[in-house]
Design a protein around this nucleic acid. Sequence first.
DNA 1: GGCGTTATACTCGGATACCACGTGTCCGAGTACCCCCGG
DNA 2: CCGGGGGTACTCGGACACGTGGTATCCGAGTATAACGCC
Lengths: 160, 160
Amino acid sequence: MKLPESTEWVLHAATALAQLAQFDQGSTASAAQLAEHYDLPAAYLAKQLQALVRAGLLSGSTGPRGGFRLARPADQITLLQVVEAVDGESPFYTCREIRQRGRGAVPPEQCREACGLAALMAAAEAAWRASLAATTIADVVAALPPGLPGRTRSLLARPR
Amino acid sequence: MKLPESTEWVLHAATALAQLAQFDQGSTASAAQLAEHYDLPAAYLAKQLQALVRAGLLSGSTGPRGGFRLARPADQITLLQVVEAVDGESPFYTCREIRQRGRGAVPPEQCREACGLAALMAAAEAAWRASLAATTIADVVAALPPGLPGRTRSLLARPR
DNA sequence: GGCGTTATACTCGGATACCACGTGTCCGAGTACCCCCGG
DNA sequence: CCGGGGGTACTCGGACACGTGGTATCCGAGTATAACGCC
């Protein structure tokens, strides 16, 4: 029950791209740039960013001055979407209905309602997802210390 | 980000032991019995139940008529405790402070407050844990169809 | 018949292999840019 | 000076090894039981 370490990477990367978009809507940052910015393995970070592209959160362009940028405004990208893009959407807990198996198998007519344990686990998971869905990347950028977005942008601005 | 499959096993096992304790405080069920009851690999289930013993949720006794029983009343055992016993208590998301590393490292004086992303992820995780901590094994047993605890007990009662 | 001893069978508990997923890396396909050449 | 073409360098994108943790299994240590023999 641990999120991939790359979750942190893509969350910060998305935040950085959002800061970049604040100044120049169409500007991009390459995977190599972001990797250097956070001291991360470039190739693996690129792999994860590709996952965000597949999820429709980022758009990637090739060639010189290419790179990644947010596919839509930062206030329309939630933390949950970023996390699910890199970690998948499969639920934490999957009920295999073991109550209906083995010597103590409960007869099907008693199983009309869902397994109580599965329902409780699903409710907890829903609380987690709801908490993450309540915040957008734009909220994260807004909470940054003032002046930092400008600094980020100047560091990520590529040599013209 | 998936709970071990054995999580379901121990949750159901704890529920079964709670039903057993309703009738006879000191009665035990062996790992082999519980495994047969749910059609599970006995040895591996035993390994997970040992984890619950280490966590202080169950107590195990050896010898004939030995086995596992709840270490305290079912209304004092939460789902969270059971899950953490088998899955560990390590947080989903660990902040490695990548914002302070690499080319874009934020100076320490700007990092007096915790990383905003880490705080949000921690809040979501807290919501999950709180949801699981709000329900006890006793609640689960109380929600079972009437008559089922008696059946479970008769199936698990061992040949005198 | 009662009690002590012994043998037994059953239990947990930990140490040992196997497999999948996350981690890390590499190379190839594609493209926008830049330079050069010709008009 | 201006436009077109080719070369180049940079980008993403997917395919290939490695390590850690969950899954599964086994065998040994310990104990309450039950039977047995003795008093």
